[in-house]
Amino acid sequence: MVIRKPLNLAKFKVPKGRVIVLAERCKECGLCIEYCPKQILEYSEDYNEKGFHYPVVKAGMENECIFCLFCQEICPDFAIFSEKEE
């Protein structure tokens, strides 16, 4: 089944964001990873001082953040936010 791929994607600008994680605040609840609509977050290999694995952007997906701010809104500890990239 051929699903038509749009040919004019270049014309559409999607907002770009940069994910910033305050690792020490994270308590590994996983909500940001679950709610990210582009699925660009994953648990880190490393852990913070409290012993929790904090979220990191998946390798190669640094430019995929669409600045929807879901992670920022859902995090109970203000440990993650996104900055708009112009």
Partner: peptide, 20 residues
Amino acid sequence: MDVCPVIVPNEFDQGLGARK
């Protein structure tokens, strides 16, 4: 439309074009 982060195929363009 400029700030919408979702891009989907446009029915008007029969899927060959996109819309937000």
